[in-house]
């Protein structure tokens, strides 16, 4: 007899969530990041052209994407895509008394429903951030080549000089925090859902809006923190 309450971590549930929230998000993250990278490169090149410093567009996109935009756009996309899904899933379980059924059986809803999703997000968001970084730099590289005539080899050489590992980590370190923010806000909103469909819709909206807002505020606080410690 096992006699219950040994809330074993369920690896199958976590892997299933990573597949849905991580692997499933790759196409849209690649597309969005590549487009944003291309736009920044074009705008940067256009402005820098007046100063005859068009090559500096590589520094601009490299630092901007790796430190800020890659992780920020990923977090916003995940807040919209997975945050809403988490709130809707937990909320509809709340609505149909499935959460009460879990409690009555003696299972802890946080352990069963929230924990696997949080772990999956903590794994998926950093990986997606790396994917977003590559895609955005790829989009920027293409535009630098077509619009400014900077060949890819020159782009990569220049990028090597302008960034180092700390630039990459400055962005990547934020990813797990963003994952936690999205996951926790989405789970709390899901647990607040009452008995009606309107309540479910309202909390899904609140989940996405709050998560995106907090993600942006936290990104700003990281920027202040980095400035303060000269990172």
């Amino acid at each position: 007899m096992k006699l219950g309450r040994a809330h074993a971590i369920n690896p199958a549930a976590i892997i299933n969530q990573i597949d849905r929230m991580g692997v499933g998000a790759v196409p849209i993250i690649v597309l969005m990041s590549a487009i944003v990278g291309a736009i920044i490169a074009q705008q940067g090149a256009f402005q820098l052209r007046y100063f005859g410093a068009e090559i500096f567009v590589v520094d601009l996109v490299g630092i901007l994407i790796l430190r800020e935009l890659g992780v920020l756009m990923t977090a916003i996309m995940i807040a919209g895509r997975s945050g809403s899904a988490i709130t809707a899933e937990i909320g509809s379980m709340k609505m149909r008394e499935e959460v009460d059924a879990l409690t009555v059986i003696g299972l802890n809803p946080v352990g069963v429903l929230v924990f696997p999703r949080l772990v999956a997000l903590m794994v998926a968001v950093p990986c997606l951030t790396i994917v977003a970084n590559f895609a955005a730099l790829g989009g920027a590289m293409l535009i630098a080549w077509l619009y400014s005539g900077i060949p890819p080899e020159a782009f990569i050489d220049r990028l090597r000089d302008s960034i180092d590992l700390s630039t990459i980590f400055a962005g990547l370190i934020k990813a797990p925090f963003m994952a936690l923010i999205v996951g926790i806000i989405a789970s709390i909103e899901g647990m607040k859902v009452g008995g009606s469909a309107e309540s479910l819709g309202g909390h899904v909206t609140a989940s996405v809006v709050k998560a995106i807002f907090v993600v942006i505020v936290v990104d700003g606080m990281f920027a202040i923190f980095y400035a303060a410690i000269d990172f």
Binding site: K2, L3, S92, R96, E97, E98, D100, A101, G106
Partner: peptide, 26 residues
């Protein structure tokens, strides 16, 4: 407990639903 609307776990099949308490305790 049989809740008013059943409260079966919608992500699980009927068989898996019945096995949830068994998994937890046995």
């Amino acid at each position: 407990v049989l809740f008013q609307h059943g409260a079966l776990f919608s992500a699980l099949t009927v068989l898996e639903n019945i096995q949830v308490p068994m998994r937890e305790y046995l």
